[in-house]
Structures are given as structure tokens and as C-alpha cells.
Amino acid sequence: MDNTQTKKQTAVITVVGHDRVGIIAAVSRLLADKNVNINDISQTILQDVFTMIMMVDLSKSQEDIKLLADELEALGKSLEISIRIQHTDIFDAMHRI
């Protein structure tokens, strides 16, 4: 949380919605196009809802996280699921002391 340290360029992408063919493919393709590396991926069905969590690295991407958020949101709309990207700092702040 130090102000002067170089910020980590990692983010968490969460996909929540009804399962269907091609969700992972579509999200991965978008990320590959933007040169965003996927560090980790997990998926599960929680209370009948498909949930996918991706840890991604933005350091090699030229894309601004805000633009990426817009594009993921648009992709989510077309697939009728919810896709969010959030900087990992928020999870650090909330869950790590």
C-alpha cells in the first residue's frame, strides 16, 4: 500500500452467469488480442450459477484497464453474462492484513 512502490499490474476477472458454450474461449480471445496474460483460471458452479475467476497480468498490454473493462462488459452483454475486471489491490486491501 506504499504510495511510492511500483504498482502491480495484475487484475481479477470474474464471470458470473448461465453456463454456455464458448465463454472461456471468448474471454481468452479478447485477452489474447490485448496481450493480457492469464496467470490462473478457475471455474465452478455455485448455486446453479457458472462462476469463473481469472487472474491476469496487464504488464505487457498497452491497453488501459478502464478500456479493457468497457470491452469485457460489452462482451458480457453479448453473451448475457456479467464480466468484471478489478485491480487486485482491492482484494489485497479487503482480505490481507
Binding site: V12, T14, V16, D40, S42, T44, L46, T51, I53, M55, S82, R84, Q86, T88, I90, F91, M94, H95
Partner: peptide, 16 residues
Amino acid sequence: MFNEFEILETIRMFQE
């Protein structure tokens, strides 16, 4: 890293 529970807890706080 974070586990699923932590991530989903955070997401739900904002969304729901």
C-alpha cells in the same frame, strides 16, 4: 493469491 470465497465475497459486496 486469493481463494474463490474471498473473491466472490468482494464481488457480492459491490453487486448485491
